[in-house]
Amino acid sequence: MTDLNIFIAKIPKVELHIHIEGSLEPEMLFDLAKRNAVTLPFANAAEVRQAYNFGNLQDFLDIYYQGMHVLQTEQDFYDLTFAYLKKCQADNVMHTEIFFDPQGHTSRGVGFEIVLNGITHALNDGKKKLGINSNLIMCFLRHLSEEDALKTLEQALPYKDKIIGIGLDSSEVGHPPSKFERVFVLARAEGFKLVAHAGEEGPPAYIWEALDLLKVDRIDHGNRALEDKKLTARLVKEGVALTVCPLSNLKLGVVKDLHHHPLRTMLEKGLKVTVNSDDPPYFGGYMTDNLQRIAEALNLEKQHIVTLTRNAIEASFLDQNSKQVLSKHLENWMLTIG
């Protein structure tokens, strides 16, 4: 292992873009299927991994939603979430901000509170037992209607103490952020932080809409912002963070080769870019894997990795005091390694 890879493995990290349903490992998929008597179209975990050969975002989503069917009880959601948090511990992730997709479960008859209680119980245990801090972000599925999103927001309101933000994910092309303007206005009025997937497969115009109509605090992905100089300048000026996911981009064909990934250019232009794992079992790696692979492909140096981590701390939805604690922890760690 190279000196840089060791540095990346050990540096304290913050993750801002992880779909908890997308952290379902093939082995757990089979365990939960057996627990809940769900028949899978695969013989074993190896066969599932072979199916992770996606041509685009929709290919991935088809199998992603199929995997959701094994998640049925509060214990299932607890086990899923706590397994991810143990990966965080192994990767030295100090703080994580997790997406969940309630519509993917309530549409199957799984109660909103079952999903939320399982996840939040695990997050609380992750804090107590593993020392990992976390925030929870509820996402709307953009291929569904805004009316469905409005109903989901209503379901979430009694649990505002457990959900810090509202997001927008799933099939991007053909479902612009403007489709969800009303529900985001209401979510903002209720005090939620706001994020949206934009500019992954969709055009730069989707990023403009997310900023101007949804008034988001962060952009998830945002790769295609570089195609629009005015947009890039605005993102830099306003300090809007981009939660970039390199291995996801590679696996879904957003980039054909990591050597051509825009992340280094983003850094050089002053964008507040961060690195994240998105749906790690599907895309081939958690936080350390993503950082090591992109560092090797783009010839990043230690200062780039530190900048990415500082960006993530600043862009998190933690209060200012908590951000200062994480920043101090990072700086102290850097002093210990000389």
Rank of each mutant, 00 (worst) to 15 (best):
A225Y: 05
L29A: 10
A210E: 00
A46R: 10
G174A: 01
L29T: 11
D220R: 07
K10T: 12
K323P: 03
D148H: 13
L194E: 09
R182Q: 13
L150W: 10
K269E: 12
G22D: 03
Q89R: 06
T336L: 06
L211F: 02
L40W: 13
V244L: 14
L335E: 13
D161E: 09
K162P: 12
H221K: 08
V306N: 01
F42G: 11
T73Y: 03
L330Q: 05
N92C: 07
K215Y: 13
N299I: 11
P246D: 02
P26R: 11
L308V: 14
N276W: 01
L153K: 07
K272N: 09
H221D: 07
K302G: 01
G109P: 05
Q103E: 07
I132F: 01
Q103H: 07
D228R: 05
N135E: 14
T81W: 03
K251F: 06
V110M: 04
H221A: 12
L16V: 15
F60P: 07
L271C: 13
L330A: 02
K34F: 15
T96L: 01
D31M: 15
K230H: 15
L40A: 04
L258V: 03
R108I: 09
S322G: 02
D59V: 03
K328V: 13
H304M: 06
N135T: 15
M68A: 08
K302E: 09
F112Q: 06
Y282H: 03
K127T: 14
